[in-house]
Simulated scan of single mutants.
Amino acid sequence: MMRTFLPPGAGRSSALPLLVLSLLSLSLLVSPAALANDYPTESRVDYVLGCMAANGNSYLTMQKCSCSIDVIAEHLSYETYEQVATVMGMQDQRGELGVLFRTERGMQDQVQALHQAQADANLRCF
């Protein structure tokens, strides 16, 4: 964190514009990729472990699965990823609730976006 040092006797109100300008300039230095990297570590690890269970528990598979979640994170925000995971989990439900998650167009579009991200990840990582 950047600290603003004030000369002795300087009031905080005179440093406020400098602090605001400093924070604004720092926010311009943050890359779009860093802003897109909003996936919590726990979710990334969970994905990699599931991917490894499906594809083999080797070091090479771990590298490929780690690459895969990184590619998915480039395509989908974490919020969207969570929503898709919920939709996919609810599609297996019986009755009207399951039908809603299987047929609602907006939800299916999100699932399709995940499938496209996974296809890109497969091409780039596997």
Rank of each mutant, 00 (worst) to 15 (best):
G11C: 08
R12A: 02
R12C: 02
S13G: 08
S13C: 06
S14H: 12
A15R: 11
L16S: 03
P17D: 01
P17G: 07
P17A: 08
V20C: 04
V20W: 10
V20A: 07
L21M: 11
L21R: 14
S22G: 15
L23M: 14
L23V: 11
S25G: 04
S25R: 15
S25Y: 15
L28V: 06
L29A: 13
L29C: 12
S31D: 03
A33S: 12
A33T: 08
A34E: 03
L35K: 12
A36S: 08
D38R: 14
D38N: 11
D38P: 00
D38L: 07
D38A: 04
D38Q: 05
P40C: 02
P40Y: 03
T41V: 10
E42N: 07
E42G: 05
E42P: 02
S43Y: 02
S43V: 03
S43I: 00
V45C: 02
D46P: 04
L49G: 04
L49R: 14
C51N: 00
M52P: 01
A53N: 13
A53T: 08
A54S: 14
A54P: 08
N55R: 05
N55L: 05
N55G: 04
G56H: 15
N57P: 06
S58C: 07
S58Q: 07
Y59K: 14
Y59P: 01
L60E: 14
L60V: 09
L60N: 06
T61C: 05
M62H: 07
M62R: 09
